[in-house]
């Protein structure tokens, strides 16, 4: 019984982690291949595919687009989401549940529907550019995460410190910036990182929202794979994953990111 249990735990963990991480490690290994096609085990060792990633014009453009959407969309979602979270956690708001449902709904509805609906009923009738449409879609998509994470850190903060600040002579707005913001900074940064990663990796919302020269990074990767099956997408995937993991790791290290998510 004890022997069985002492074997059981490491075995389960090994298998689960191998299943979850293994495929990604194969991709990383394949990106150092010297061969012409994507394969494992890699044929030889070279950095040619990693180097190639930086020379593909469409990758550069779509990377720029995805960065813009991830950073801009997350900032916009925070600008909308922080006041909304504050209202939801600090006020007796009439219809609070309705507001909460509306702002968190984009997380429940499949992204492909959001993208299509936006295309048909906003982009086409109002003649909006694809870039703006993508920006709006990504902002709407990140908003639920922003509201959830910021609300959680507001719930953990006593509201009477704001009253204390007011009684010491601060205005309500001043109290927010002097005593609320410094204390939810960690939550806001966590929301930013979560929003960034979600937006950057998002595919379905962006599926229908692409135009000449306007594509997000993951969509561009899929399009590239359909034409060329070389290890450059593996190399690109590895680099992007390294970026995401690096950001999250730094956030965990310096902020305790996981407390907020």
């Amino acid at each position: 019984m004890t022997v069985a249990r002492s074997l059981f735990i490491p075995l389960v963990l090994f298998l689960v982690i191998a299943f979850l991480i293994g495929p990604f490690l194969i991709i990383v290994a394949a990106s150092f291949s010297a061969g012409e096609t994507l394969a494992f085990p890699p044929q030889g060792f070279s950095l040619r595919w990693i180097a190639k990633v930086f020379t593909v014009e469409s990758f550069r453009a779509s990377f720029g687009m995805s960065m813009f959407l991830a950073i801009g969309g997350t900032l916009a979602a925070l600008v909308l989401g922080i006041p909304a979270s504050y209202a939801l956690s600090r006020y007796k708001l009439p219809g609070a549940e309705i507001v909460r449902t509306i702002v968190s709904a984009p997380i429940i509805v499949p992204g492909i529907i959001v993208g299509l609906a936006l295309l048909r009923y906003i982009v086409v009738p109002f003649q909006i550019g694809i870039t703006l449409a993508l920006f709006m879609a990504h902002t709407a998509l990140i908003l639920p995460y922003a509201v959830r994470v910021v609300s959680a850190s507001l719930e953990n903060l006593r509201s009477d410190i704001e009253e204390a600040a007011v009684l010491l002579g601060s205005s309500r707005l001043g109290a927010f910036f002097r005593v609320v913001m410094p204390n939810i900074r960690g939550g806001i940064l966590s929301a930013f990182i979560l929003g960034f990663v979600t937006s950057f990796n998002q595919v379905p919302v962006s599926l229908f929202l692409s135009g000449p020269g306007v594509r997000t990074m993951p969509i561009d990767m899929i399009a590239y794979m359909e034409i060329v099956f070389d290890p450059s997408v593996a190399a690109l995937s590895s680099l992007l994953a390294l970026m995401s993991i690096g950001i999250v790791f730094a956030a965990e290290r310096f902020l305790g990111f996981s407390r907020y998510v």
Partner: peptide, 29 residues
Amino acid sequence: PANKRAVGLVFQSYALFPHLSVYENVAFG
């Protein structure tokens, strides 16, 4: 308004500002 009343309040939970030192808490107002 409350911030112009010259009324002090010691809260039941004390409501100290967690991100500020004791000195900064007292210096706040």
